[in-house]
Design a protein around this nucleic acid. Structure first.
Lengths: 143, 143
DNA sequence: TGTTGACCTGGAGTAGGCTCCAGCACTTAC
DNA sequence: GTAAGTGCTGGAGCCTACTCCAGGTCAACA
């Protein structure tokens, strides 16, 4: 498989794939006689995993570290698992935070919907959910 | 409240607060005789809301649009609600995706744990969860 | 009155993660 | 044999979201 095909299958741009290779996230890329990169089907699994790590906020640098351990073979299994476990904690924190934000935005939408239904303005204090320390405030335009 | 205090309360750096003002995310900042920015307590609620939007992936540019509508007062309530509703969809998608990634990473960790417990290598195909189209693959180092 | 600390401005620099480009090489189909 | 399509390289450029800096002002306190 050449880079165009890999790009299609992974939905990463050709430039991105070359960039990932450059920084060490994709390794051991062989070439054909013409100098074209030739990829093994199995690389797709790794790239999909990279996308998962990326989607969960791991910086490329950390993934490169992980990739290097992976290159070193089975004796780094423990290290890689530790990295993933740390990252897993991070994902859980993210999920919880995102859920909180989800609920806050939902509440805010409901406030708007209510205000529109009533024909009223947004009530004073409608931002309360977003402040740790407030009792009552003037809120001319509301958030 | 001066900028140092606001920075402490919002946990945004002074530079960030000035930057947000520059791009129009924080408006109507008054000054004292000496030219120092003076903030109203009520601004904190808006900043906390901005942090929620940011944490859920809204670009600053979009927030600036929202902020401008907000400046225009109650007649933009419907527009603002629409923006939030669109963004809410986005948050739901994110949550679902993050949950999927969470589960995949968890599964991967379990595979590692199993391998370590067995003293075995990571089994062939342990990346299956990360590929749409694969049956079996050679997987010398596993992902 | 002097010093210290907080604040001001404009503008440059940074980090992360790509994205684009010029100029060239190779392959494939007609 | 030639044109189209795909690929190559090195390096510059871009976008977002800050972050830092120099050089200056102002206020509060001793």
């Amino acid at each position: 498989m050449f880079i165009g095909e890999l790009s299609k299958q992974t939905k990463l741009s050709i430039d991105t794939l070359r960039y990932y290779e450059k920084i060490g996230l994709i390794a051991n890329v062989t070439r054909d006689r013409g100098g074209r990169r030739v990829y093994d089907e199995s690389l797709i699994a790794w790239i999909e995993f990279v996308k998962v790590l990326k989607a969960t906020g791991m910086p490329l640098k950390h993934m490169v570290d992980y990739a290097q351990l992976r290159q070193q073979g089975p004796q780094t299994t423990q290290d890689r698992m530790s990295i993933l476990q740390d990252h897993f904690q991070h994902i859980q924190t993210q999920l919880a935070h995102l859920q909180t934000c989800h609920d806050l935005v939902e509440a805010k939408i409901n406030t708007y919907a209510q205000a529109l239904a009533d024909g009223s303005n947004i009530p004073i204090g409608s931002c309360n959910a977003f402040t740790a320390t407030n009792e009552e405030k003037t809120n001319e335009h509301s958030s």
